[in-house]
Design a protein around this nucleic acid. Structure first.
Lengths: 139, 139
DNA sequence: GTCAAATTGATAACATCTTATCATTATCAA
DNA sequence: TTGATAATGATAAGATGTTATCAATTTGAC
């Protein structure tokens, strides 16, 4: 059970200050109900931190991933998304219409690999129409 | 069973010539045992068509996808790969070591989607170590 | 063989996403 | 409050993948 008290890096590093920007970004990610892109995170955090810049978002995301507070979610054909670490095993649903990515639970995968292949992990992405977009289209 | 005699575009377009370059590219894809990236296709086709350029590879790939001779395969965090169309339903395995992508058959997925979500398709990507890399590492 | 025009290859230009730079500002231990 | 310095924001620069440009070449109907 790899958890890493401190990041894999040597020393504990410099100070690490608690800023309005980082608080806003963490806040957004704590309350997100789906993985978010850096742009979405910026947009959602701006109201809590006027003037927040995209560079700070990227910097904070990198730091939060390093300290394992965040996990990167990669979906085919989209930029990397971010979600809180430590969630139970789950997969993702990408809406054809709005391109948002949702988490889905209870997904079973069974595969037989060729001789000599060893599996370490897997991703499942389901494509379709999300609830909002189904409703808006009335069909 | 959508097959499209002619591409979704209006007219049948201009001539369409049979060139050494296109033949080389089609040949590579016909004999590939896994989805290939544009760079891999260029490298594999070069011996059959000296001086072949990457621009021609991209042009040809686009044309072949348009006429449904090729399908694009998207894997998280990698450039788009291409494989022959018309293969039976299958998924992909990406090697952690060499980053090559293989096709795998016989993969079952079952998921329960939230109310209002409708699935249209799905992708499964399994990560691990391929046969070559397992063998080379002797462990 | 001719020749209009499709195709090619080299490369510049784009698109997109991410990181580096640096002057300015904010943090927080003392 | 002070002050060393971490952090920020604007933006340039980088990385990567793909497309456009255009002169030169190749194709193929005649």
């Amino acid at each position: 059970m790899r958890r890493g008290g401190s990041p894999a890096v040597p020393g504990p590093g410099p100070a690490a200050r608690d800023t309005r920007q980082k608080r806003a970004i963490r806040r957004v990610l704590e309350h997100a109900d789906r993985p978010l892109s850096p742009d979405e995170i910026l947009a959602a955090a701006l109201p809590h931190s006027e003037g927040l810049g995209i560079a700070t978002v990227y910097r904070s995301l990198r730091a939060l991933v390093d300290e394992r507070w965040l996990s990167a979610v990669e979906v085919p054909g989209r930029p990397v998304l971010y979600e809180r670490s430590g969630k139970s095993h789950h997969h993702h649903f990408m809406c054809d219409v709005c391109a948002r990515v949702y988490e889905i639970e209870g997904c079973d995968v069974s595969a037989t690999l060729p001789r000599g292949f060893r599996a370490r992990d897997h991703d499942v992405t389901i494509y379709g129409t999300c609830r909002d977009c189904s409703a808006n289209r009335r069909r």
